[in-house]
């Protein structure tokens, strides 16, 4: 797989098939970091701690969790009251059985429902806690100093930066994931989607709407 898809940061001297691809991105990273990664990986493989195949399988597993999975979950919750109730009551078992996901050895998950009365927005001020088992790796901004510092003290202003303006009477609840629980937001189902099937609805559910910095797309 190519690791050089950084717009204008492509290294002309290293093609995607370069056998030395592990050390890449000298534009972005200190050489010391890249050397450290390769040295650690080599030594840990030599010690039998893990194999190259373990690494690849772990990468594949991580990459298989994307916001598209979350969007399917939300669409199901919008159309299926029993599933939504199960999801809100105990998310991991509900997800495991409905979507055939192996969520063992992944963190606990709580699903929060946005309503006309309350809007949840999730963050992690201490590090980067995120419902990776459903949404994959968090976006860079979620891990940024700016988001982590500001969303707990000026959430409306932060939401506005994301283009999200909520009615004044809607209560905001900023959810700081400080410990072992991860949080996933069910955004409000947009009006004008009555009778839509899950696939059509899922296309309205963005990653950011499941973090709570945005609302679902309006058809």
């Amino acid at each position: 797989m190519s690791t050089h898809d950084h717009g204008d940061h492509v290294h002309p001297e290293h093609g995607a098939d370069d056998p030395h691809a592990p050390i890449d991105d000298f534009d972005h990273y200190r050489p010391e970091s890249l050397l450290m990664e390769q040295a650690l990986r080599e030594l840990l493989m030599e010690q039998g701690v893990f194999t190259a195949e373990d690494i690849q399988r772990q990468i594949d597993l991580t990459e298989s969790r994307t916001p598209a999975l979350g969007a399917r979950v939300i669409a199901r919750a919008w159309v299926d009251d029993a599933f939504r109730a199960a999801l809100l009551a105990d998310a991991k078992p509900a997800l495991g059985s409905a979507f055939e996901l192996d969520l063992a050895n992944t963190p606990e998950l709580t699903v929060l429902e946005n309503t006309q009365a309350v809007h949840h927005v999730v963050c992690c001020t201490l590090c980067s806690c995120y419902p990776r088992n459903i949404l994959g790796i968090p976006p860079a901004w979620y891990k940024s100093r700016e988001y982590r510092s500001r969303v707990v003290i000026e959430p409306r202003s932060v939401l506005k930066e994301f283009g999200t303006e909520l009615p004044a009477q809607r209560e905001i609840r900023v959810v700081d994931s400080t410990a072992d629980m991860r949080y996933l937001v069910i955004p409000l189902r947009p009006q004008g989607t009555e009778g839509w099937d899950e696939e059509r609805l899922a296309a309205l559910v963005t990653r950011d709407s499941m973090i709570g910095v945005a609302q679902a797309l309006v058809p």
Binding site: P22, S33, E37, Q58, I59, T62
Partner: peptide, 8 residues
Amino acid sequence: FDQRVDAM
């Protein structure tokens, strides 16, 4: 690099 560090 990101993926490998994450996987490790």
